[in-house]
Design a protein around this nucleic acid. Structure first.
Lengths: 352, 352
DNA sequence: CTGAAAGCGCTTACAG
DNA sequence: CTGAAAGCGCTTACAG
């Protein structure tokens, strides 16, 4: 970003007025243009003499001059801020990504501002508007259902937009997702290979693409094996809490010997339901979760899970975004990245 | 913040040039000063005629004019950005706070940029510098060990600084913490009242005030009851992982009938150690954790925990910070808020 | 009651 | 090889 290493912490010198480009120019008896060129690494390009370069460099270091970020942003329109829009930053999946993404951004001089939509379409629109108004340089978005049009319009702003977690088949944009179909297919085959035949699948009643894909992987694997398919679609926001819906489902289907929860919050509720019913895992029912998280490894028995490659997701998001920002691939066609999941086999799916 | 309601999403109109204050002024044949006054709600104060006010207001709405955030920040020095510095944004405690804090900030037109120090003092200094360079309006900081001087210097910048989670006794600044001493004291008395006498305490080898306070509460309660004190101080970053250190401690102290883990990451490792040793909770050993999190409620048996009032912490942080930002209490003396914890009694501390 | 103008700290064509 | 100047879009003393 800057070509000069600034070692002096500047906020330690509040008392003295902050140094501006004018100060440097005046003290050296040269113009601010020249100082600007040197500071921005355009000295050679502008053919500034070696002598002037070194005098500027020296004084800049001495006085701890840094171009004011606000003035620069105002002038150039670049804020070095990236907007990160998620359902809920407090969910482990998003907060883990937040950590990795921030670290990657950091290395390139960017900062992240985030916001949680809480799954509200209205809120999501407002937040995108706020990001836009604040001139973020790029967007990282877990696309809320029904926001396809807004995101499409955002693309006209020519700022890079990278979707993740979900995508919308009709949107021709960058995205980084995981291979949901293969993830659940592999998990289903794992259960089948361990002798489970009556495998239930718990999902939510939605049109979200990633949830549909997960269901598809399960259905395909079971049909290929000639095993019966049994799906519970939870209605969120209905009067009945999901723990109860799952408990009812399990009671009504006593023949099930395994169940796949298609999201970690469903698995949490599933574990609660199973505990309520007093079922033993894995002897009475085998459990498998989409999206691994700390609890599953620590639970007794530990729970088999389809893990998302968090670090790889973050790395890919940032590689695409930074690539576009640094205009190495500003005009390249959309990069659509699908990462493999990995199955963490644990005690909850022990062979019958 | 703005007195005018802007309903038209502006990012939907990329094609047409963004409207500036000049456009409004030109179209109405008045000066930009007048437009500015009206837009900033200073019309009455500046005694602008009702006629002009309504004409400006109308056109502003019609064209969807919004003052450019970047220009305004540059001019006024206010960025409406708050810097949030934590150990690790992916930890549930911090990410939950991040969610609440963002929501509160949102209501007042502020955005949050965050950074994780990863417990590195050097990193933390750099990050504070970056926040400073970006002209954040305020700081919310989980004070890293050894950064007291830097934070003290930051106070000279006259931007509000609110510490949370930890504080440094010598620093006369705003902070929001919890009552660690009472938290562990209450927890200890709970165990004693349930018939446990040999209660161990697992903490880390640190000078962090909040960890010392937790230890103090435990020690006081046990001494008051005439019960023996037994403390394990984990050395983080040593060759031996903490799970092993805890397992060794438990093996060497077979007389323990309960153990308090003074942080949730210690409890996680503790649960792993207990599982390794094959000890039954709570029959062979009772477990209690400082800092509640989802896993503890779901674990079998569910684990008793000292819960921090996350929403209250966030609300208090923001109340103090926004109060200072809106200069209602710009010069008031430091607000030092200590919030009570609450004990979530669960199966892991069932009476012997 | 309203406007002309300075200025926030930069970057960048343009001129020489 | 370097400088004078315009301008980014605002806010705010100052003048009338």
């Amino acid at each position: 970003l800057f070509i000069i290493a600034f070692s002096t912490p500047v906020y330690k010198n509040f008392m003295q007025k902050k140094v501006s480009i004018k100060d440097i120019a005046r003290k050296l008896g040269i113009s601010i243009s020249t100082v600007s060129f040197v500071v921005n690494g355009k000295a050679r390009e502008k053919r500034i003499s070696e002598d002037v370069i070194s005098r500027v460099t020296k004084l800049v270091e001495e006085l701890g001059y840094k171009p004011d970020a606000l003035a620069r942003s105002f002038r150039t329109g670049k804020t070095y801020i990236i907007g990160f829009l998620v359902d809920d930053i407090s969910r482990p999946f998003f907060s883990s990504l937040a950590r990795f993404i921030d670290e990657e951004a950091e290395k390139n001089g960017y900062k992240i501002i985030y916001s949680s939509t809480g799954n509200s379409k209205t809120k999501a629109k407002e937040l995108l508007q706020i990001f836009y108004d604040r001139h973020v340089d790029g967007y990282i978005i877990a696309l809320p259902e029904g926001l396809e049009n807004e995101v499409e319009e955002l693309l006209h702003s020519k700022k890079p937009v990278v979707l993740f977690d979900r995508y919308f088949p009709g949107l021709d944009t960058d995205y980084v997702i995981i291979d949901n179909v293969s993830g659940t297919a592999e998990a289903s085959r794992h259960l089948l290979s361990r002798g489970f035949r009556h495998i239930g699948f718990v999902t939510i009643n939605t049109i979200e693409q990633q949830m549909l894909d997960r269901q598809k992987g399960y259905e395909h694997a079971l049909r290929d094996a000639g095993a019966p398919v049994s799906i519970l679609k939870i209605d969120y926001g209905l009067n009945q809490p999901s723990v109860q819906q799952i408990a009812t489902y399990l009671k009504k289907n006593p023949g099930l010997d395994a169940v796949i929860f298609s999201a970690n919050y469903l698995c949490m509720d599933g574990l609660r339901a199973i505990r309520q019913l007093g079922l033993k895992i894995p002897d009475e029912i085998s459990v498998l979760s989409f999206d691994d998280f700390e609890l599953l490894e620590l639970y007794s028995p530990s729970v088999t899970a389809i893990a998302q490659p968090l670090e790889a997701i973050a790395a890919n998001i940032m590689a695409v975004l930074l690539g576009r920002l640094e205009s190495k691939m500003a005009e390249a066609s959309p990069r659509q990245i699908i990462l493999p999941t990995s199955l963490k086999i644990r005690e909850s799916t022990r062979r019958k």
